[in-house]
Design a protein around this nucleic acid. Structure first.
Length: 163
DNA sequence: AAAGTGATCATG
DNA sequence: ATGATCACTTTG
């Protein structure tokens, strides 16, 4: 069973501690462990981009598990998300932190990720590896930066950090 | 505490 | 075509 087939909140928790492999065009390979994630779960989640339905941008979220969703935020920062769950069911996990880079904008800078990876699949330029390691403790807390969402969605504990 | 930054989406 | 809105980071 692939982690990414799980519903986003479960996948987000399970991804903490897993390894992300980034293969650059020049052959360099970076391997980093994921330390922090956040789940965005379906059209009913008012914090999820797909809550306003399918658009050119959110189309990627409706793709099958394992699709990579990258978009630009605040005109400066790329955000890296991994699509989870079945096709036509928009869910994704935002990679908020990895070893060596804390903060979603820094992660993409550190791994040299930009929109060229959007709508591609894991297994190529970016891949996931499970080496069996599990963090001692994973803490759940409210998601950040979603003040526009409904209060009940802001209250969801869908941000996961490794201890 | 506040600004910088540009794609995206909803208006007209 | 124009304007509002951001799943953030850095600087003072």
């Amino acid at each position: 069973m692939n982690i990414l087939d799980l519903p986003a909140p479960e996948a987000a928790r399970a991804l903490v501690g897993k390894i992300l492999i980034r293969r650059l065009p020049d052959g360099t390979e970076l391997r980093v462990r994921i330390t922090e994630t956040e789940a965005y779960y379906g059209e009913s989640d008012t914090a999820c981009h797909a809550c306003h339905g399918r658009t050119k941008r959110t189309e990627v979220l409706y793709h099958p598990a394992g699709t990579i969703y990258v978009y630009l935020c605040y005109g400066i920062h790329w955000m890296l998300n991994l699509v989870t769950g079945p096709a036509d069911d928009p869910q994704a996990v935002l990679i908020r932190g990895v070893e060596g880079a804390s903060g979603p904008g820094r992660v993409t800078k550190f791994l040299a990720i930009d929109k060229s990876l959007n709508d591609t699949r894991l297994g190529g330029a970016l891949a996931l590896e499970d080496d069996g390691y599990a963090p001692e403790k994973v803490t759940a807390s409210p998601r950040v930066g979603i003040g526009y969402a409904a209060p009940e969605d802001q209250a969801k504990l869908w941000r996961f950090c490794a201890e």
